[in-house]
Amino acid sequence: MITLIGKPGCHLCDEAREVVSRVAGELGVPWEERDILQDEELYRKYWEQIPVTLIDGRQHDFWRVDEKRLRAALEK
């Protein structure tokens, strides 16, 4: 499971969403998006790092999503 943490109006989040959506779709991996503006705990933890990607609840990347790195982590 991939979790993308971001917020509306964030251009890096938009780019990350495209990569996550494409990779998850191709590999058949479920994913969700969480908005830091709707969750105080996520905001406190990640506000300087968005977008953040988690794989199975563990932080994988922040600021940018590297497609090759994401694929490699999911194919393990």
Rank of each mutant, 00 (worst) to 15 (best):
M1L: 06
I2S: 01
I2Y: 04
T3V: 04
T3E: 14
I5Y: 11
G6F: 08
K7S: 09
P8G: 13
G9R: 12
C10A: 09
H11A: 04
H11D: 03
L12F: 09
C13I: 04
E15D: 15
A16R: 12
A16I: 00
R17L: 13
R17S: 12
E18M: 09
E18T: 11
V19P: 03
V20Y: 12
V20I: 10
V20P: 09
S21Q: 15
S21L: 08
R22Y: 07
R22W: 04
A24V: 05
A24N: 02
G25T: 01
E26K: 12
E26P: 04
G28P: 01
V29D: 07
V29C: 09
W31C: 05
W31H: 11
W31Q: 04
W31F: 14
E32W: 00
E32T: 08
E32P: 03
E33Q: 12
E33F: 13
R34E: 12
D35Y: 01
D35E: 05
I36L: 15
L37K: 11
L37G: 09
L37A: 04
Q38K: 14
D39W: 02
D39A: 01
E40K: 13
E41Y: 03
E41I: 03
Y43N: 15
K45N: 07
K45C: 04
Y46H: 06
Y46W: 05
Y46E: 07
W47F: 14
Q49S: 15
Q49N: 13
Q49D: 15
I50K: 13
I50E: 09
P51R: 11
P51C: 05
V52Q: 07
V52A: 08
T53C: 06
L54Q: 06
L54R: 08
L54H: 08
I55S: 00
D56P: 01
G57W: 00
G57Q: 06
R58G: 10
R58D: 13
Q59C: 02
Q59P: 11
Q59A: 01
H60Q: 13
H60V: 01
H60Y: 08
H60L: 15
D61N: 12
D61R: 11
F62E: 08
W63Y: 15
W63N: 03
W63I: 06
R64T: 02
R64N: 09
V65G: 11
V65E: 10
K68L: 04
K68E: 15
K68W: 01
K68G: 10
R69I: 00
R71M: 05
A72P: 00
A72H: 10
L74N: 05
E75R: 15
K76W: 06
K76Y: 04
K76N: 09
